[in-house]
Amino acid sequence: MNNLFTGKNVIVQGITGAHGSFQTKSMLAAGTNIIAGTTPGKAGQLVEGVPVYDSIADIQKEHTVDISVIFVPARFAKGALLEAIAANVPLVICITEGIPVHDMLAVNEALTHSGTTLLGPNSPGALLPGVHKLGIIPAAMSLPGSTAIVSRSGTLTYEAMAALTAKGIGQKYVIGIGGDMVHGMGFIDCLRLFQDDPDVDRIIVIGEIGGHEELRAADFIKEHVTKPTFAYIAGHHAPAGVQLGHAGAILGSEGESAMAKTEALKSAGATTATSLTSLLASIV
């Protein structure tokens, strides 16, 4: 993958909404080059000085679009995502939380036949300290540097970043992949990006109980990652939140626990801990 995260021209879908306009301001302040935004029916308005268009296609008549950050409400998110995919936007970052799973299955289907990479939904986005901010990760708590963070949980992303900053350890990438059942980029996509980027010298992976993605990430680390990697899986003592009847219980039996995932990451060569605070303490 080319480095999609350094794309220049950024747009915001849902720019006139409460979250969209507030976050546009905060992204601009963090140095993001937001060239335009969309909200159907609101073309001609300005949000924080950024021109609003009806559609991505209208923006593309005048500009190249490299990245779209989506803040539209959940019930309209499927439409917004399909629009961005149809417009062939290289990187789409969906912050919206609460998108119905069946809507995401349809989006996923459209993605497989497209040139678009999706981060999210229900993701805090990505922050490249000192470069730009693509989402809602608080830039004030970051510091430019060479550590890369990938996490499933928004709050733990901020927590890890703020703790590193407090120690004077800067970050090259801070990426939240989102906790939804059906989502875009996963741990492996981010690990590949971090491994291939010569400016990254250390990787932090924050996972959770449920699913098998962290186990596959462990396999990937073992095979392909040579940089020092630190990993924490949240939920060593918390019971699984959602039980999908018998099918879930049967499928959830092996490998989905925090302990199993931690073991796998450890045997793949990562430094692990049973709490985030102790993991962060081990990073110097």
């Binding site: 996490s151 499933r152 949980s153 928004g154 709050t155 733990l156 927590e159 906790g179 924050i206 959770e208 109980i209 924490y232 949240a234 939920g235 060593h236 003592h237 918390a238 019971p239 939140g241 925090a258 049973t274 709490s275 985030l276 605070t277 102790s278």
Partner: peptide, 29 residues
Amino acid sequence: FVTINEQGNTATIANGAGLAMATVDAAVD
């Protein structure tokens, strides 16, 4: 909201599923 141990001496409150789990993990540690 999930009860882990009815007889536990410590209650936890956090925001975000990840932070809530991490808080419980750190409390046990």
